[in-house]
Nucleic acid binder design. Structure first.
Lengths: 334, 334
DNA sequence: TTGGCCATCCAAACCGCTTTGGATTTGGCT
DNA sequence: AGCCAAATCCAAAGCGGTTTGGATGGCCAA
């Protein structure tokens, strides 16, 4: 070959100051020798780490669940398409801040994604101080205008779902929500309450729950409510997994889902929990979290490419899809 | 301060050639200035990338499921405890090999974990050629002795589960397995068949399925089999998610799980699908995949620390836990 | 006092790339 | 032929650490 390091670098990185012929030869050689530039060296030289960080607290709750993985998968596709790496840090809850600080001070990533914002979110303040670009999956209450985020319209989705149930004649509607200190759950609850209020009804606290969205959570609460007096005729559930539990609970009570008791669930379109077919099992509000991951990544990469740009966000509406789990409210026996 | 770069480096990295007093001052200053060594530079200088790679094909199948996330979470804990980063690459199935090659040639990671080995696995050959340390989550048929791996005893778990059902009087047992081109599913099937053979029975192909372990997969096949002639009285299922589907299917047929029809499922101890309590919902073979992740990471880090060491592996037995979903075979009506 | 030996600390080389600022060659035009 | 701009290519200076091979100074035995 006999070419300088400079030329090889330029050839490989697509700079124009190199003839097509030379570029071809370099590429060929590199290919033949299995050469690829050492990424640490390149990162050091360019000052960009070409990686996006995701900090996930170890605690077993909402976060550490399949929804998160699906999001990650979506984001990961976008990253690799743009030559970025994805860095996951699993940390003790107590060390979450440290993790962000380290990413910033050691330059481990060019940006991060904030997962699962809470009502009293603070991470964005730290990241701003650290000057680390970020995108929020969800929204930070009170910081919507000054941050980039991607979120579905949780309030509206649950408002529409509730309205559908009301239209079907249901008035005793239970809400099995996620943890309401999380922003998304908080909004969903508001949508639920708004819809009820729109019909002059008000939510019955006895029919509302807020917890980690496991399967047993759905089942146990469904059974408890159905066996109580003045039971609900419909359930609005925050996740497919819990909805499956609710369906099980309904079955345990000797009732039929979609006939005696209706269910609407939010469906994140998880690959292992398909809820499709001509008539899906569950009536649902659906929004692909994988797609959200892709878009969040795009937003973040754009921010990194142009740090002067204004914050950009994406607000998506969930589809309301009719499945087998809803029907008219049963006529009151009395 | 007025200390040389050398001294600072040594102080921070715990070398002995620096006085306690100086070390203290350096640490204090670093802390105060929020200084931490740039990781790219350090990596370049040391030649170690201090990261472990996980390549996950984008395809939506077994892999891209919650089990994977739980494993990742376990591994991630170990990594961060040892100062390693976790690098995830989500790639097109067709580019999986490329991803490994890149990791090796660009020195993106010091080692990788192979997920979901198949019956005709080849990745380990590539990695050996690339001289990239790796640990297999699962086992590679025919390469058990020459690779490091961590796996549960799939065959034995399913053999024991089958024997339990046989002891309860079940003879028509259905197997809803994962994709049998995957090693783990293959072994589970063997366990099932071995147990039957041990009693002079043989598996009925009409009662065996192999597919992605979704919820509907469980439900649909349960219904189909139960409505067919000569229906099974018990189901052996490869995942909790499908087992939930099976339970739903049983309900749809107007039957009672644990009474009319028994279920034993494998339980990976996923956080969002707890199957515990005094008497768990499902009788199961249980093995924590999160723990497997921790151990796999430890194995890999040890390999990296001492490249001359012989391959080490960990073979874990699953617990067989009695829950509510099993009971004696119903007496045959005839 | 003097030499020797630690305990400390430091200057400089190096890790493998990108990028800057020239140097050299080529080719078109007058 | 002579000149200039464009096209190529290259040497060397970083990037921010770690590591090597001494220097320096203090302390103790001879």
């Amino acid at each position: 070959m006999n070419l300088s390091q400079t030329t090889v670098s330029r050839a490989l990185n697509g700079y124009p100051e190199v003839s097509a012929e030379t570029r071809r030869r370099v590429a060929e050689m590199a290919d033949q020798l299995g050469y690829a530039p050492n990424s640490q060296a390149r990162r050091l030289a360019t000052g960009r780490s070409m990686a996006i960080g995701h900090v996930i607290p170890r605690s077993i709750h909402e976060m550490m669940n399949p929804i998160f993985l699906e999001f990650i998968a979506g984001a990961g596709e976008t990253y690799s398409r743009h030559g970025y790496d994805m860095m996951l840090s699993v940390v003790d809850d107590a060390h979450e801040e440290d993790a962000y600080r380290q990413i910033a001070s050691r330059k481990k990533a060019d940006g991060v994604i904030i997962h699962g914002p809470a009502n009293d979110e603070r991470r964005h303040l730290l990241l701003k101080k650290l000057n680390l670009p970020f995108v929020v999956h969800g929204r930070i209450p009170g910081a919507e205008a000054e941050t980039s985020w991607i979120d579905m319209n949780n309030r509206r989705a649950f408002e529409r779902a509730t309205n559908l149930l009301l239209d079907l004649g249901h008035t005793r509607i239970a809400l099995l929500n996620g943890l309401e200190h999380m922003d998304f759950a908080h909004r969903r609850r508001r949508g639920f309450e708004d819809a009820l209020a729109g019909r002059g009804l008000s939510a019955d606290p006895a029919l509302m729950r807020s917890a980690d969205m496991t399967e047993p959570y759905g089942c146990e609460n469904a059974v408890a409510m159905l066996k109580g007096d003045n039971p609900p005729t419909a359930f609005l559930v925050s996740s497919m997994i819990s909805a499956i539990g609710v369906a099980r609970g309904i079955g345990q009570c000797g009732l039929k889902t979609g006939k005696d008791v209706s269910i609407i669930t939010h469906d994140d379109a998880l690959s292992f929990l398909p809820n499709c077919g001509e008539v899906p099992i569950f009536t649902c509000t659906r929004s692909s979290v994988r797609y959200a991951g892709q878009k969040a990544a795009e937003l973040l990469l754009a921010m990194i490419a142009d740090p002067t740009a204004k914050p950009a966000s994406l607000h998506m509406d969930a589809e309301l899809i009719i499945g087998q789990s809803t029907g008219p409210a049963p006529v009151r026996e009395s």
